[in-house]
Design a binder for these strands. Structure first.
Length: 123
DNA sequence: GCATTGACTAGGG
DNA sequence: GCCCTAGCCAATG
């Protein structure tokens, strides 16, 4: 499997329940910004792989696709506490999971461990 | 190795 | 705020 695909899968895997991420963000986190479309291509092959692909949505909080089962994807998201109106996610900006570029080296949360509700900067 | 495709995104109407 | 068009990238045939 291409390293890019592996990265994408890894990233999608660490999206917690109730949270969502856009294809673009995932592509960027995987090291290929702008490859959102490629991410979608990878997703269609990972229907079953232990990857919560239903938490991957399109930009602007839209649902995007899910094979031919976008409706199922919507239900899954709602089941996790995500409010979905039509084909758009409500409070998308707050539901979006902040991804990480790459686990190059994470010794042991050196200083960010005791962070409170003030994330210094909000993308 | 080139051409087509597809769970996308950003911009304009 | 929704629909259509053009651009982009990796995967597949």
């Amino acid at each position: 499997m291409a390293p890019f695909a592996a990265r994408v899968l890894m990233i999608v895997r660490r999206i917690p329940p109730g949270r969502v991420a856009t294809y673009g963000d995932i592509a960027e986190a995987a090291g290929h910004p702008g490859a959102a479309r490629a991410v979608g291509n990878i997703m269609r092959g990972c229907s079953v792989s232990g990857v919560p692909c239903h938490r991957v949505v399109a930009a602007a909080g839209r649902l995007g696709g899910y094979g031919g089962y976008a409706g199922l994807k919507r239900d899954l998201l709602r089941a996790e506490g995500v409010q979905v109106l039509g084909s758009t996610i409500r409070d998308f900006k707050t539901r979006r999971f902040r991804l990480r570029a790459a686990p190059v080296s994470r010794s042991s949360t050196p200083k960010g461990a005791a962070r409170k509700h003030k994330p210094t900067k909000m993308r």
